[in-house]
Simulated assay, not measured.
Amino acid sequence: MLVIALDTSTPAVTAGLVALEDGSARSLAERVTLNPRAHGELLTPHLTDVMAEAGRELAEVDAIVVGSGPGPFTGLRVGMVTAAALGHALDRPVHPVCGLDAIAARAATGEPLLVATDARRKEVYWAVYGADRARLTGPHVQRPADVPAETAGHGVTAAAGEMAGLFGLDVVEPGHPTPLGLVEAADLDAPPQPLVPLYLRRPDAEAPGPRKQVTAR
């Protein structure tokens, strides 16, 4: 089984092709660039390079996995719209995956884990995972100083994700969702879930309200 993996929920622009064989995932090719302003410019070229390096055609792909956040509005939409368009054009299922789950899936520790990524505005997106990588709580968005009180009682000893160094825990890789992590966190045997982005908070832009009366009655 061949699976395209895409993610733009963090500053990393990620595209990869993963082969699933006998229940194990193997990366055939991947491209990752850390640039929070270039998701739209780089994602499709990255995917094109990945397919060329792997020597495969898009028509050979069986499924698509895409990071659904949490993440910023503009970047997150790039990956999800690209995945939706590919799925429609190829008539292939598209599976959304929480990016924090994808990071946890590849974290090199067998202990309970905190995953934290940059939410901007001096906040982090975070979730806690058990030793089996089942999510115990989250995803949430909070100030880093408020997270330790929320994670107390889960026995967390390590952290992953780009903001892992803020909590005084052992820091483990990865810092961003990887193609292998995205595929391993997806349930490809189940029907795809709706492609709904995990924004976790309201957008900065709001629809304008009614115009104010400026003339006397």
Results as ranks from 00 to 15, higher is better:
L42F: 08
A207I: 15
L34H: 12
H176I: 11
P174M: 02
T8S: 12
G69F: 01
Y125M: 13
L100N: 03
P197K: 02
T109E: 03
T10E: 04
A107E: 03
S24I: 13
D189R: 14
A131E: 13
H176N: 11
G55T: 05
V78K: 00
L169D: 02
L17I: 11
P93C: 03
A52W: 12
L20V: 13
A127P: 02
V115M: 01
P179Y: 06
D187G: 02
P210M: 06
L180D: 09
S24C: 12
V13M: 03
L86N: 09
V65H: 01
E21V: 14
A102T: 08
T157Q: 04
F167T: 02
L136H: 01
G40F: 03
T117V: 10
G153Y: 08
V156F: 00
L20A: 02
A52G: 12
M80D: 07
M163I: 00
M80P: 00
R133K: 05
M80E: 01
H140I: 14
D132C: 10
L200R: 07
S68C: 15
P36R: 05
A145Y: 03
H140A: 13
A102H: 05
H39G: 11
R92Q: 01
G165C: 13
H154I: 09
L86E: 06
E41Y: 11
A29H: 08
A25I: 00
P197S: 03
P139Y: 06
A185W: 03
G181I: 04
L114K: 05
L136N: 02
A59M: 12
Y129A: 00
D7I: 08
D146T: 10
A52H: 14
E206K: 14
V32G: 11
A102I: 04
P36Y: 03
T14Q: 10
G69V: 00
L166C: 06
V81Y: 00
A207R: 15
H88T: 13
L43I: 10
V196T: 14
R31H: 09
R31W: 10
T8H: 01
G99S: 15
R135L: 05
S27M: 14
A145K: 12
R217W: 14
V13H: 01
A83L: 00
L6N: 05
R217M: 11
A5K: 04
P148A: 07
V214Y: 15
A52S: 14
E30K: 04
A207C: 10
V65T: 06
R31I: 11
D170T: 00
P197E: 06
G175A: 15
P177I: 06
P194C: 09
L43Y: 07
S68N: 15
P45L: 10
Y199R: 06
A108C: 13
E123M: 05
G165Y: 13
D7N: 10
E30D: 10
A164D: 05
R143P: 08
H154V: 11
L28N: 11
A164R: 07
Q193C: 13
V18C: 02
A84K: 05
A185F: 09
A83W: 08
A216I: 14
G209N: 07
P194H: 07
V94K: 07
V115F: 02
D101L: 05
S68P: 06
M1V: 15
V66F: 02
S9P: 03
R120W: 05
G67D: 01
V128D: 01
A108M: 12
G69Y: 04
A152P: 09
E60G: 14
A127D: 01
Q193Y: 11
D7S: 12
V141H: 08
G79K: 02
L47T: 09
T33E: 15
A186K: 06
F73D: 12
